[in-house]
Design a protein around this nucleic acid. Structure first.
Length: 422
DNA sequence: TCTGGGGTCCTAGGACCC
DNA sequence: TCTGGGGTCCTAGGACCC
């Protein structure tokens, strides 16, 4: 029999993580902010009821939150990443076939015969709540796109559905699709929804019934695949193993605007350090570095300027010294004085596994030495904390740093910030 | 020089996702 | 005063080749 696909999604994930460790916010509205404490990126149900929308700038909802005695947190990705790992690990108790799709979502491939899918969904939900304190919703159906819709529905009607909705070969699929606006279908964004609306295709059901060649013409193959998935035809493959990364980005907005070359250089070198660490953690090396700068898009003073440029090499490297040289060459090329920059970043691309690094024609010995040095530095920093050892050119503070005034402690990731029991 | 079809590779930009 | 960051996939178009 055809396998069923479950989508597990943590409810209000970042807000729920904050709640697990802070009993005082259990009953208060909770929101979590983006970097720089700029806008709201996660909300508890109570915060949603207040009318705080996803992505609202904090300054627009600050008064509202204050009045409701809401708890407001800067984002704490170390904490969320750790909690995510705990949730995902528990899933292995239910099926070996898991695709971790994002920090708070996973697809599970399930054998429909094994036992009632409804019961299985419920026990997954209970177990995760009991062991991690994170509430989750489970949607089950024939394909990923349908499982997404089932999940969304399970969340919406939480009381009736108990957080689990099984639409696998279910007569309820048709009414649910007819009630789902096409813009809420996974993979249909703002642009596509507009095009569909112009054709009077308004619901998920309408999209399902659409002529496939027409869907392809209007929305390219991506849209055609979604339409097929809505019919129960599996088009999006299940990816059990994490696919190799193609790029690694580190970019940030600054807490204030920055004009001096030296400050931007510091920011770029700092971001490069972070990106390099991540790259080596995945056992990769980069053949290209992109550097980007941008002025404030909301206040283009004196003018809008958002350049980027890429340095490519025939020899991939995982050594920060070499990456720094590439990045600074690129930065010099795009830097113009007199602009008020609000953001900078680096992208490492052309990634290859370090096992595939070929011997260099010139100066291979030096390259190998650098490779070993980076390994040693990463090891020390992993043991003793970020930036215990770093290149002298890299500063860890400056006027380019972001604002994070309301960060919760690293309850699970930092020995100095463990929860205290009195 | 521009006549012709067919193919690959690369990149920029659009669209979408969480 | 105050508006996030990190990704993927697809397509079109140019360069280059035979």
């Amino acid at each position: 029999m055809d396998t069923a696909i479950a989508l597990l999604d943590c409810n209000n994930f970042y807000a729920s993580c904050e709640r697990v460790f802070d009993a005082s916010v259990k009953r208060r509205p909770v929101v979590v902010l983006s970097n720089n404490d700029g806008c709201v990126i996660a909300r508890s149900d109570e915060a949603k009821e207040l009318g705080v929308t996803m992505g609202s700038p904090l300054f627009k909802v600050d008064a509202l939150l204050e009045e409701a005695d809401a708890a407001v947190f800067s984002s704490n990705y170390a904490l969320y990443g750790d909690m995510s790992g705990r949730v995902m690990n528990l899933l292995h108790n239910f099926t070996p076939e898991i695709e971790v799709y994002s920090i708070d979502e996973a697809f599970l491939s399930l054998e429909p015969r094994r036992r009632s899918l409804d019961n299985l969904g419920r026990s997954i939900r209970e177990k995760i709540y009991k062991w991690t304190g994170i509430p989750v919703s489970v949607g089950i159906a024939e394909t990923k796109v349908l499982a997404k819709i089932a999940n969304r529905r399970a969340k919406k009607a939480e009381l009736q559905a108990q957080g689990v909705l099984n639409l696998y070969r279910s007569p309820r699929t048709e009414p649910v699709l007819k009630e789902t606006p096409v813009a809420d279908v996974w993979g249909i964004g703002y642009r596509s929804a507009l095009k569909l609306k112009a054709q009077n295709i308004l619901t998920a059901w309408d999209l399902r019934e659409m002529d496939n060649r027409f869907a392809r013409r209007l929305l390219t193959v991506a849209g055609a695949r979604i339409a097929l998935e809505l019919r129960g035809v599996k088009c999006l493959p299940f990816e059990f193993v994490q696919t190799k990364k193609h790029n690694i980005t580190c970019s940030r907005s600054f807490g204030q605007t920055v004009s001096a070359y030296d400050d931007l250089k510091q920011a770029v070198l700092y971001f490069l350090t972070r990106a390099g660490e991540k790259m080596r953690k995945h056992g990769l090396a980069a053949s290209a570095v992109t550097v980007l700068l941008a002025t404030d898009r909301f206040r283009p003073v004196p003018a809008d300027y958002a350049p980027s440029a890429t340095y490519s090499s025939v020899y991939p490297t995982d050594g920060n010294q070499e990456l720094q040289t590439w990045a600074l060459k690129t930065l010099e090329k795009i830097y113009r004085p007199h602009y008020e920059y609000r953001r900078a970043g680096v992208i490492l691309s052309g990634l290859v596994g370090t096992e595939k690094l070929t011997k260099r024609l010139f100066d291979d010995e030096n390259f190998q030495k650098q490779h070993k040095l980076m390994k040693a530095i990463d090891e020390i920093n992993r043991k003793f904390g970020k930036d215990t050892v770093r290149f002298a050119s890299v500063r860890t503070a400056g006027n380019w740093k972001m604002k994070q005034a309301r960060k919760s402690p690293g309850y699970t990731t930092n020995w100095n910030e463990l929860m205290e029991v009195k």
